[in-house]
């Protein structure tokens, strides 16, 4: 686990400026100084959380509607959101060294719950994703990517009680964001020698136009942390 301070702005979506609508340049958006709406990506976060809430509480109809809203353009960001939430749920349940017998029991429950002849549900793939989170990261490459969200939801809906409280959900989401920020910073360090979305001191950079679309009030976060999104934009402009 990293010791760096993490900003809740270092969400996976922040690393994906390509999620802007075609023809909508990020800098163009940030130049419109009077625009105080939350950034589209912040809306994504609420959408992802609403969808996850509906799924974890078993509200299939709402979840389906929200899944349609999430759509194709946000699929990559959503995939990462689901992955980080999955990590949080798994670590909370099993820690980082799960007992193989506990995993086998989970796998058997998932098989009995979801497998029907011909539907292709391989419970061992769900188990593999759990183990991937707990140190066997190789296994993440052995489950087809297109199947991963389905197996992650199967595990999460098995481990999270449908009556989960709002407070417990908020804790899960917050934990998922911390994990996401750590993954991104570790990945950035591995690939480029420096973390993605560095929480650089605000004073080091001139107050760029990007700060005006920052939806989080300054007092709501530590003074030395500024949105990773703004830092990303300045690097690429």
């Amino acid at each position: 686990m990293s010791d760096e301070p993490v900003s809740d702005k270092a969400m996976p979506g922040k690393a994906l400026p390509s999620e802007a609508m075609p023809g909508e340049s990020m800098s163009g958006e940030s130049m419109s100084g009077s625009d105080t709406r939350p950034s589209p990506r912040d809306g994504d976060k609420e959408l992802f959380r609403a969808h996850a809430t509906a799924r974890l509480r078993g509200d299939t109809e709402t979840a389906l509607g929200l899944a349609v809203q999430i759509g194709e353009a946000r699929r990559m960001a959503h995939l990462l959101f689901v992955l980080y939430l999955f990590c949080q749920v798994v670590v909370e349940e099993f820690g980082t060294r799960p007992d193989p017998e506990d995993l086998a029991a989970l796998t058997k429950r998932l098989h009995e719950k979801h497998y029907r002849p011909g539907n292709g549900f391989c419970a061992i793939r769900a188990e593999a994703l759990v183990r991937a989170v707990c140190g066997e990261s190789l296994l993440m490459t052995e489950v087809p990517v297109s199947e991963q969200p389905g197996y992650m939801w199967a595990v999460m809906t098995e481990l999270v009680d449908p009556g989960v409280t709002d407070g417990a959900l908020m804790e899960l989401f917050a934990g998922a964001e911390v994990i996401g920020a750590e993954v991104l910073s570790d990945t950035g360090r591995a690939m480029f020698g420096e973390p993605f979305g560095p929480p650089a001191p605000r004073t080091e950079a001139a107050p760029g136009p990007g700060s005006e679309r920052d939806p989080v009030p300054a007092e709501a976060r530590p003074a030395d942390i500024r949105p990773a999104a703004a830092a990303d934009e300045e690097e690429t402009e």
């Binding site: 086998a104 796998t107 058997k108 098989h111 009995e112 497998y115 002849p117 292709g120 549900f121 391989c122 419970a123 061992i124 793939r125 593999a128 296994l139 052995e142 489950v143």
Partner: peptide, 24 residues
């Protein structure tokens, strides 16, 4: 293409008390 290692693991474990793993 790479072998399906998870299916191989499922086949092994199916012989040691987890026969359901081979059903799919």
């Amino acid at each position: 293409p790479p072998p399906d290692y998870l299916a191989i693991e499922a086949a092994v474990r199916s012989l040691y008390g987890e026969p359901h793993l081979l059903e799919p």
